[in-house]
């Protein structure tokens, strides 16, 4: 199923004034692979996303994407390479419609002097429609994003991330605040992505993780803990003690 190596996180350390949110963390991802990353609160999952997309600069280690070192590149340059991330708190533009949100993300030329127009250029219309269809918002496209239901906002942001055309998609807690039905739809959406994209999904909800049927990487206190199938990881005594230790 999965192809050659796409992403290599190589011994990353992120240091917040002496506190190591990531501690020599490594993982790899193949082209077309979907990977789930789990770990207790504060394990460093969001910080891992931050380090990949250039929001924080690691104190040590490298992030290699298609063999190229991303550390030190600007955020825009990293998006241009083909990586985009969904934030934990939905980051949509509340004042414009769902379609306009997707259209902003879908623009290929993002320079300011290309922004003095209204509406969506005809050649981008089709891809915007396709994304809206894909995330199930086709009939909600003209609603102001701020007026969408919570789950719809999450889907909209996933749609925006997809619209950038990114090959590697990072989804930080995409089902936060969703009910079981919405969660299942989200799992289905992410499983469909597997054909064309590589995906890293971060989540807490084990029933959701099971539905994704993808390999799982477990983090703890900024370090790599375990990797394996959902069943294997669930049965692992070390993983169990880490989670129990935290929920106690």
């Amino acid at each position: 199923m999965s192809g050659p190596l796409l992403l290599a996180v190589d011994g990353i350390t992120v240091d917040f004034d002496g506190f190591k949110a990531l501690d020599t963390f490594s993982m790899t991802l193949d082209k077309g692979e979907t990977r789930v990353v789990i770990g207790p609160n504060g394990a460093g999952k969001s910080t891992l996303c931050d380090a990949i997309i250039g929001r924080v600069r690691p104190a040590a280690g490298r992030v290699l994407f298609r063999g190229e070192d991303l550390t030190g590149l600007s955020e825009q340059a990293i998006v241009e390479r083909g990586i985009c991330r969904k934030f934990q708190a939905p980051g949509i533009l509340a004042g414009i419609t769902a379609r306009e949100n997707v259209a902003l993300a879908a623009r290929r030329d993002r320079s300011w002097w290309q922004a003095f127009g209204k509406g969506i250029p005809a050649e981008e219309q089709a891809s915007v429609d396709a994304v809206l269809e894909r995330v199930g918002l086709a009939d909600r496209a003209e609603v102001k994003a701020g007026e969408l239901a919570h789950g719809e906002k999450q889907w909209l942001e996933i749609g925006m991330v997809l619209a950038t055309g990114a090959e590697l998609v990072l989804l930080d807690e995409p089902t936060a605040g969703m009910g079981p039905a919405e969660t299942s739809r989200t799992a289905e959406l992410i499983r469909d992505l597997g054909d064309t994209r590589s995906v890293i999904v971060i989540d807490h909800d084990m029933s959701f993780v099971e539905q994704l049927a993808a390999p799982v990487t477990v983090m703890h206190q900024g370090r790599f803990l375990k990797q394996g199938s959902v069943e294997a990881v669930r049965a692992d005594p070390e993983v169990i003690s880490v989670y129990l230790g935290h929920s106690a």
Partner: peptide, 28 residues
């Protein structure tokens, strides 16, 4: 009313979001 206006408001409300969609909010 142009996309520039939308992006300016986006830089106001969700600077990180547009940064990580590949826009540089600074020139706007």
């Amino acid at each position: 009313a142009t996309r520039f206006g939308n992006l300016l408001r986006a830089a106001r409300d969700a600077e990180n979001r547009i940064r990580f969609l590949g826009y540089n909010p600074v020139p706007f």
